[in-house]
Simulated assay, not measured.
Amino acid sequence: MVATDALGPAAVDDDELARMLAAHLALDGPAAVRDVEVSEFAYDLVAITTRSRHLVRGTLVTSEGERPFRLFVKVVQAWERSPLFAQVPEHLRAVAAAGVPWRTEPLAYRSDLAHRLPAGLTMPAAIAVRDLDDLSCAVWLEELDVVDEPWDGHRSTRAARLLGRLSGSPRVAPLAGVGGVRFTLRDYRDGRLAHQVVPMLRDDGVWRHPLVADAFDADLRGRLLEAAGRAGELVEEAMALPHLPAHGDACPNNLLAVRGVDGFVLVDYGYWMPMPAGADLGQLLVGDVQTGRAPAGDLAGRDAAHRAAYVAGLREEGCDVPAEVVARGHALHHLLLTGLSSLPSEHLGAEPSPALTALARDRAAIARFCLDRVDETATG
């Protein structure tokens, strides 16, 4: 029996695991592993391109002595392999599959992006990246000693400044398209927005659901429908703005505090690609609000602080994209990707609860904020 059998298709034998570790550590001479243990890594958020997450721990034995190792193994896969893909109507499956760039994350870890990130940002060390077949890949990373730190104003504005530095960095710029994916807001408009989001906004039954009706009033419904009707022109406006490297999902859950690291460890690179300047500010602001981990609170005040910090980060890297262009790119991207899809559709079949009621109201606050920002940043 192979010690890593619990990894399924990602399993390797002891000799191969020892070779992987020795190569990563640049060790000379023979190496072996012992006391290898595999455990499933608990994670409470659904990710359609993640098949599994495991921890692999043990001891590496070399001529220089013994050392413990702690690894995190993530198997990423094409969306069509997710059980949730069965919910996609058959005539839309080709479009849906093309709209989720699952290969980007392995390619990011195969690149030298870690050596190009600005000071204050880093990423887990990749021990190995191994293709399993044409539609899946195993990413072997160092296990991180994550520290639970509160997201106060200082921490979030520091993250915004570093995201600005990431977007403005001339060293990062050559890897903006490392995933080789030509996925843009036009693809999102013609895919999920057209076939899922807009039809839901036009569904009277959804608006009559108590969870929605109690939080999304008639005025908000009208504004969302009007914006959905203008989605085509809003996308084209956003496409004409400067595009910069972006993490793509810079929510607090993907900006980790790790023991011994001064700054943040960025994880989950599935949507790493060029995006309108300021795009990463959306998930930084509301990522935890969308999932119910944090209340909406003063979205406008926090967003203003984030934008100022992001622009400061751009300037530190010599990027001169105007602040008003950042504001507009952020506003358009946030409305299209988040504001229009703010209805709590995934909870409409759940039993009513105070927590879901609060979540729906916070989702409504996100929608109003996104709409307001698009109105406030409009010119002419």
Rank of each mutant, 00 (worst) to 15 (best):
A218C: 13
A218P: 11
G222N: 06
G222D: 04
R223S: 07
R223N: 05
A227S: 11
A228N: 02
R230I: 12
E233L: 12
E233C: 10
L234W: 00
E237M: 10
E237T: 10
M239W: 09
A240D: 14
A240V: 10
P242N: 03
P242T: 05
H243E: 03
L244D: 04
P245M: 02
P245C: 11
G248V: 05
A250T: 00
C251W: 12
N253L: 15
N254S: 10
L256R: 00
V258P: 05
R259F: 10
G263H: 12
G263I: 07
L266R: 03
L266T: 02
L266A: 12
W272K: 08
M275H: 14
A277W: 04
A279F: 09
A279M: 09
D280G: 09
D280K: 06
D280R: 00
G282E: 02
G282V: 02
Q283R: 12
L285G: 06
V289G: 08
Q290W: 13
T291I: 13
T291Y: 15
G292W: 07
A296Q: 05
G297N: 13
G297Y: 14
G297C: 11
G297L: 09
G297K: 14
D298N: 11
D298Y: 06
L299H: 01
A300W: 05
A300Q: 07
